[in-house]
Write a protein that binds this DNA or RNA. Structure first.
Lengths: 226, 226
DNA sequence: AGGCTTGATGAAGATTCGATGAAGGAGCAG
DNA sequence: CTGCTCCTTCATCGAATCTTCATCAAGCCT
């Protein structure tokens, strides 16, 4: 397995987690190195950051696809970028938005290895389901028990970030970075307001939530558990 | 079936999708090779990229047509190029603009194989239907309840991009790249104006659209789903 | 239980966004 | 060269949305 990220500490961290789960992991810090390594020893799985200096992740993905059929997970900074990647038919097997928990990544890798190759993500059905909730990233549509829920852009983005990382707890700052970008300044409790709006529209009770759970003192999360 | 694209990864990707659907696929990366292969074993279908180095897609199409009756799908980067191709009577059976979803390509191929061969451009219907709206990409004709709607080139292109990617939300920038090309510079709200024109000609109310929906803060989309 | 911290929520002003009409200008046909 | 069509830019209006603020409720610790 090959982890590609220009931020060395992050690459190491990720590699460490994967190694702990028995994977044989190497790292690369730029596109050229990644392609060279992939040629050399064909890692079964490549964890690939989108924003690489020089040759970017999209290009790496395409080149690697010319000689290898390995699994590729793309890491993106923002949910919106996934849209673009899908539109470009980049051909990665899975996408993950930063920030993500190492545990989440490991789980995704395992899930990917378990299922047969499929590219539904790039075929237009970038759907996901949480109970009676369906989220279509491509059409930016949310349905609750089949009924369309009208969310604003920000509301959708917040929900999408949480939903694409089941079980992961996001701090307000993490959510803001994921949705608004790192340059945003202002009161981080802005997130609360949008969460409240989403909850209202989903008919979710904050004291006994079905979808978005509050983790007091930390942030919010979705997904099963507790 | 033969896939011809000078971008090897893309060719492989496309071939992979088609193989997954049971087609027997070979690839070629330039015009000469494509023609040679077509002579050798007459693939029933050729997926042909327009922008090939050396002998370009148009030339390949013409040469192949001199000795084979196979189906040809042309891939173009821009909708407006379809114009040119039709003007030149290239004689492809269908056209597809990049980016396209793999599923869409497969669907087009199947649809093409299903219908009997027609005489070239005039009858090779690259039609699609959205409610009472019919779009013929080949003839660049739009009909609303059977009535011909007169759209300008740009108006048609914008509509075509949206219509060929049902449900997908396009940002203004994505639309501009698809229709005007990546090198275009200017105010991205130009898209709004053309959308307004199309809507007016289609009798579409922006506040309760039947065809082109506004996704506030993001862009526009067509297709079913509220 | 009491005090402190954290989160939920409603309201309101500020801001952004989209629809549209109009005008200048480029390109093309005659 | 002239007139026409179409593209593009610009400005404006109205509305949707964002963000801040204030207040109230709930959780946590001692």
């Amino acid at each position: 397995m090959l982890v590609v990220d220009d931020e060395v500490p992050l690459a190491r961290l990720v590699a460490g987690y994967l190694e702990r789960d028995g994977f044989d992991v190497a790292t690369a810090t730029d596109g050229h190195e990644a392609i060279a390594q992939a040629r050399d020893w064909d890692p079964g799985v490549i964890v690939l950051d989108l924003g690489l200096p020089g040759v970017d992740g999209i290009e790496v993905c395409r080149v690697v696809r010319t000689f290898s059929d390995c699994y590729i997970i793309m890491l993106t900074a923002r949910v919106e970028e996934i849209d673009k990647l899908i539109g470009l038919s980049v051909g990665a097997d899975d996408y993950l938005t930063k920030p993500f928990s190492p545990r989440e990544l490991v789980a995704r890798v395992k899930a990917m290895l378990r299922r047969p190759r499929q590219d539904d993500t790039s075929a237009g059905t970038a759907d996901m389901t949480i109970g009676s909730l369906t989220i279509d990233l491509l059409a930016r549509e949310v349905r609750l028990a089949g009924e369309l829920v009208d969310l604003t852009r920000t509301e959708f983005d917040v929900l999408a970030v949480l939903a694409t990382h089941p079980r992961m707890v996001f701090s307000r700052v993490q959510l803001i970075e994921a949705v608004w970008g790192a340059t945003w300044v202002g009161d981080e409790h802005l997130v609360d307001v949008h969460i409240a709006h989403v909850r209202r529209k989903l008919g979710d009770d904050s004291t006994a939530p079905t979808f978005i759970r509050t983790v007091r003192g930390v942030g919010y999360r979705m997904g099963p558990g507790q």
